[in-house]
Write a protein that binds this DNA or RNA. Sequence first.
RNA 1: CGGGGCGUGGCGCAGUCUGGCUAGCGCGCCUGCUUUGGGAGCAGGAAGUCGGAGGUUCGAAUCCUCUCGCCCCGACCA
Length: 589
Amino acid sequence: MFWTRSFIPTMKETPEGAEIPSHQLMLRAGMINQVMAGAYTYLPLGLRSLKKAERIVRQEMDAAGAVELLMPALSPLSLWERTGRVEAFGDVLIKFAVQRAGRKVQLALGPTHEEVVTDLVAHRISSYRQLPVTLYQIQTKFRNEERPRFGVMRTSEFLMKDAYSFNPSLESLNETYEKMYAAYCRIFERCGLEYLPVEAESGPIGGDASHEFMIPAENGEDTVLHCRKCGYAANQERAEVPSRDCTRPDTPEKELAKLATPGASTIEQVSTFLKIKPNKLIKTLIYEADGKPIAVLVRGDHEANEGKIRRAAEATEIALASPEVIEKVTGAPVGFAGPVGLAGKLPIYADNSVKIMVNAATGANEADAHLVNVNPGRDFTPDKYGDLRNARDGDPCPRCSGTMAERHAIEGGHVFKLGTKYSAALGAKFLDHAEQQQTIIMGCYGIGINRILAGLIETRHDEHGIVWPVAIAPYEVLLAPMKADDEATSQAVERLYADLQAAGVEVLVDDRDARAGVKFNDADLIGIPLRIVIGPRGLKEGNLEVKWRWEKQASMLPIDGAAATIAEWIAQERTDNARFLAARNGEGD
RNA sequence: CGGGGCGUGGCGCAGUCUGGCUAGCGCGCCUGCUUUGGGAGCAGGAAGUCGGAGGUUCGAAUCCUCUCGCCCCGACCA
């Protein structure tokens, strides 16, 4: 491809509103153009990279035994009503009515496709002989995100690979899950991405039923906890906090006292007012678990984890109670709840860290008053202790003696053992060997294709622009002629271009009538992995100048046989990203 | 949904507080000449309902009211 015949509108300046590197660079490199908040046009360069990521995903899914199909983005709203997800999705589900032959038809744009695919299987699969099967598609998903942001990272329309496995048994599901997990590892590796599979919220099946494939990145929206010692990694929502080191200090217990704390209702206000650190406070949260109020105690500097609370309370729905409920239950306005005197009125669940607190401060269940020198066991006794808080940086690892570190990350993929939630709701059953009707067990496996690009750019760029691996780069080689009107140069360019094309290398020729500086800067910006400069200077010596994007210095390559050498490098790099990864790990120059 | 910021040629911005002539600057774009290995120089040129509507005023990019859009933080996120 020739630059002047393509459409590559690069920008020197960063458009207003683009905050993170991937967004800025994709705009500046002419890969995308914003149409509205959360919707982007993929320009030729962006589309080429997107297609490459898509191709890798497709190849690996095929290799793992999944079969591709294509479902419509449009579906009848009634299908979503059958699984209760119209309500579950709320405004995120884009739904609308159209007039059709005089009647109103309710439609939805698919944010995911469990319903559509399960309905298909319910109609077309009826025997164990047809199972297991894994169906996948690569298709545009629609989600009316509350707040689209960070360029291509969170949009209302995005390209997703979604796969669904239909298994006759739990063992079969586990087998498929392992295969998908392994395929995901290969996909991220082939894309040149650093990734971290982490344990995630697992839903109805429990255990190790869900993993997220995280791309560690400064600007990631998710937080994961990772133990370098044993490799344990989990989403913050999921990460366990071990209860060891739970010996209570033998500080003498002081006498309980009530202090006036006018207007101090938040942890910060109370700790400032009483001049004590937040970790000496007991935070008392009133939740409603399936409609029934419960009290949850965590240390003032800790964050309550609603998933853990839900499990501890054995509830299906959990939400912070309204101010009215809190006042009714504690007798005090929000901000002054405390465990003392609450026993018997409602179940009290306390985080393990509360158990070892001595002479703590907490709400007095009375407006503008707090209690100090509160001691668990003496002044109150929770119904149950457990792990109820979010793990955080520096917490001990639940699997070994190490310490967990907090990292921001981009969720690139998610594998999930669904169980029978959708198959039961939509009647996806099969007849087993013994002529028994069984409900199909499902798994689902998603990858955000756009996030592969954003994740790569976030993790691999420099002050000049994007640094692509060959596997995802829009073109593999950039040919930059230095003197367009020089006869020898243009002949050399023509020949090398033809030879590389013939060898199957994807080449972009910067044939613009521009100065060297412009070409070099744009080359760095769009990040093509191998740059080849052809000009009279090198040609005099019979040389080309070659430079990998991640190298600082160019080197010379004799023009004779150059095409074959380059084609060989590229072919190698395509499969293993070896040079790209070596440069990332600081082994390059 | 709560808080904050911003809308001025394609892009980045100044001008707005304190209303006043044909609304500026840089980049980009077009024409010509010169130049040509890390974002060239000179000369000439095209291009803007100042987000929109209403209002105040002799006069509005500037003041007032409403409204639309974009960005960030938070809440939310199968």
